[in-house]
Amino acid sequence: MSLSISLIVNGAPRRVDLDDPRVTLLDLLRERLHLTGTKKGCDRGQCGACTVLVDGRRINSCLALAASCDGADILTIEGVARGEVPHPVQAAFIEHDAFQCGYCTPGQIMSAIGLIQEAQTGDDPERIREAMSGNLCRCGAYAGITAAVQDAQRRLAGTDRSEAA
């Protein structure tokens, strides 16, 4: 059974034929669209390494069927920088040493961008940690991650929240 879906991925329209309706969004992104920045960590929705934004909302792409995303606007880590200029969240992660091995970093950044768009944490570090709790860092860079999110929120405070992505 073949199924054809249409997506907007990082601003570009894509039409994809799925041979298997059980293909996850994560596998579609990595294996078919060659966007390997989205990481396969636990493949069970527990680590957040596969976090992407679908229609502006944070999701674990390992838990979403690609077919369920037909017509969706998907933003991955490859689509957040503006050419050679990093997204403010990416820049804040670099400046605050918010990563060590880097494996979780794309998912952490995507989750932070979504969190900032949601505008529900304010500058409260505890609320930021809670909102980011679905993204695990085995290296323990949580202090840097929280500081980076706070910094990025301040940088983006004067812009439209939808522009955060």
Rank of each mutant, 00 (worst) to 15 (best):
A141D: 02
N60I: 03
C139I: 08
Q120C: 09
G114C: 07
K40E: 15
Y142K: 07
R58W: 10
A152F: 05
T24N: 10
S111D: 03
R129V: 06
R129Q: 14
R155N: 07
L29N: 05
C137I: 04
C101V: 02
L25T: 05
E130V: 13
A148D: 06
T146Q: 11
G83K: 02
L63N: 12
G48P: 09
R154P: 03
P125R: 09
L136E: 02
A67Y: 08
E84V: 15
T76A: 03
L35S: 12
G114I: 03
D73F: 06
G140D: 04
A67M: 11
Q108L: 13
I74N: 11
Q108W: 02
Q108R: 01
R161A: 15
A147T: 10
I145T: 10
D97T: 04
E130G: 04
T121E: 03
A67H: 05
G48C: 07
I94A: 15
T36E: 11
R57P: 00
E130P: 00
E95V: 11
L26N: 09
L33R: 09
A143P: 00
F99R: 06
A67P: 00
I109M: 10
R154E: 12
P125H: 05
A143I: 15
A157M: 03
L115E: 09
L25W: 07
V149G: 09
I113Q: 01
S68N: 12
V80Y: 04
D151A: 15
S133E: 06
S61C: 01
L63E: 07
R127Q: 15
A98C: 08
A147Y: 06
I113F: 05
D27K: 15
S61F: 01
R154T: 14
R82A: 15
S68D: 13
V54I: 13
T146Y: 06
G122K: 13
G107C: 09
L156R: 04
